[in-house]
């Protein structure tokens, strides 16, 4: 009894199949990226479903922006880590020497 609306997860599947033609026309190298979009949308399906949007497509778009944000954070962290790493090894590189004691700056 009850349940007039599809669940948000079902709505996502609906949107995905609605956009199948776009996927079909995409060059192969982008198709996996396209699929990943919806996967990332599903990653936040719990929260987006709880928000209970009247239009699930908006929740999907917000979820994708969110996934993007998460990925940016991860990349920034990685970049920062590498930069720190580079800073440490930089003097040796400049000197063109390869020694084992790269941590002496600490």
């Amino acid at each position: 009894m009850g349940r007039t609306n599809p669940t948000y997860r079902d709505a996502l599947r609906g949107l995905e199949s609605e956009w199948k033609p776009m996927r079909r026309a995409l060059r192969r190298e982008y198709q996996a990226d396209f699929d990943r979009l919806f996967d990332r949308g599903r990653t936040f399906a719990d929260a987006a479903g709880y928000a209970n949007p009247t239009d699930p497509e908006r929740a999907l778009l917000l979820s994708l922006a969110l996934a993007h944000e998460v990925e940016l954070r991860r990349l920034r962290a990685e970049l920062e880590e590498r930069e720190q790493c580079n800073d440490r090894t930089a003097p040796e590189e400049r000197d063109g020497r390869t020694t084992a004691g790269g941590d002496e700056r600490e």
């Binding site: 349940r3 609306n5 599809p6 669940t7 599947r13 609906g14 949107l15 199949s17 239009d55 699930p56």
Partner: peptide, 11 residues
Amino acid sequence: IPYWVDLYGAV
């Protein structure tokens, strides 16, 4: 949306 409601039905 009507399209996928048709497709999947409500729950």
